[in-house]
């Protein structure tokens, strides 16, 4: 706000307040990762990662291929446990509770995940969205949940007349939004997205991005993307990983205008990676 201490009239009256620059530390954290080391067999792929996931914000993980960003994301819903000889030490908490002490299927219901390639089940559109509520025991009528989820995923208007068609009949972009709707149907507290737009055309990508920006008011989101412009466009905080280490973690505007680390700057200016 312009300072108007010396004048008799407030020169900025009526102007909406400008959002101050957010710092990660000022936020209430939904998830906390501390001192995380991750190994595939003998090979260590993540080194001493500590980072907080702010509630109701979108956090992006960026970095060159093989930097460990997807691995980091997959630890957040313990999906790494499906891989043989994957092993980690360190701690991850959700709302202060260690995620490793909870029943894994119960825990995963609280964390939605959307994958790189759209992976609808070989079922109808309706049954895809209803899958989670069905296995988890829905409290509301299924058709309500399906409609609400498809609306939140901005897909309802496109599919409302063909809910019983196979999900494979949708376009790639629609399939990915269907997968987002499917994840939203279990009302996850955190939504993880692993390069959700890498298989989509630019228009579909833009639609998914707009969707994410809308969703973050009601859901904490973590997105892995190899497209750093995408991270710039949609995220509030950005973490830059390189060779399994967290190089920089800052509010997105800061990271993309005045990065603190020269390696971050080299990466976001396209000078390597």
């Amino acid at each position: 706000m312009p300072s108007t201490a010396n004048s008799s009239v407030s020169l900025a009256a009526g102007l909406p307040a400008s959002p101050g620059r957010e710092l990660a530390g000022e936020h209430s954290m939904r998830m906390n990762i501390s001192k995380l080391n991750f190994y595939y067999g003998e090979k260590q792929v993540l080194f001493d990662i500590s980072l907080g996931v702010a509630a109701a914000r979108l956090t992006a993980l960026i970095g060159p291929s093989g930097c460990g960003k997807s691995t980091l994301l997959r630890t957040l819903n313990r999906m790494h446990e499906t891989v043989r000889n994957a092993r980690l030490d360190g701690e991850i908490t959700l709302d202060g509770q260690s995620i490793f002490l909870q029943d894994v299927t119960q825990f995963r219901r609280r964390i939605g995940m959307v994958f790189q390639k759209p992976n609808p089940f070989p079922k109808s559109i309706f049954d895809n969205v209803a899958y989670g509520p069905r296995i988890n025991g829905a409290s509301r009528p299924l058709s309500d949940v399906v409609e609400a989820s498809l609306r939140r995923a901005a897909l309802w208007d496109e599919v409302k007349d063909q809910l019983h068609k196979s999900a494979y009949e949708l376009s790639g972009g629609q399939q990915q939004r269907l997968c987002i709707a499917r994840a939203l149907a279990v009302e996850p507290e955190v939504l993880l997205l692993d390069e959700p737009c890498s298989a989509l055309d630019p228009i579909s990508t833009a639609k998914v991005e707009e969707l994410l920006v809308q969703l973050k008011s009601s859901c904490t989101i973590v997105i892995v993307t190899h497209n750093m412009q995408q991270a710039a466009r949609v995220s509030d905080f950005t973490a830059f990983l390189l060779n399994g280490s967290l190089i920089e973690f800052s509010p997105t505007p800061q990271l993309f205008t005045t990065p603190a680390d020269s390696r971050t700057e080299a990466y976001i200016t396209g000078r390597f990676g």
């Binding site: 312009p2 010396n6 004048s7 008799s8 710039a232 466009r233 993309f256």
Partner: peptide, 28 residues
């Protein structure tokens, strides 16, 4: 009063500059 109010203009210039940089950096 004009002299006193100049600060407001200067502060607004800096804020707008900041916003321009952010918009250019974040959105292609």
């Amino acid at each position: 009063r004009v002299l006193a109010e100049e600060t407001a203009i200067n502060e607004m210039q800096i804020e707008i500059d900041d916003r321009v940089v952010h918009v250019l950096a974040l959105h292609q």
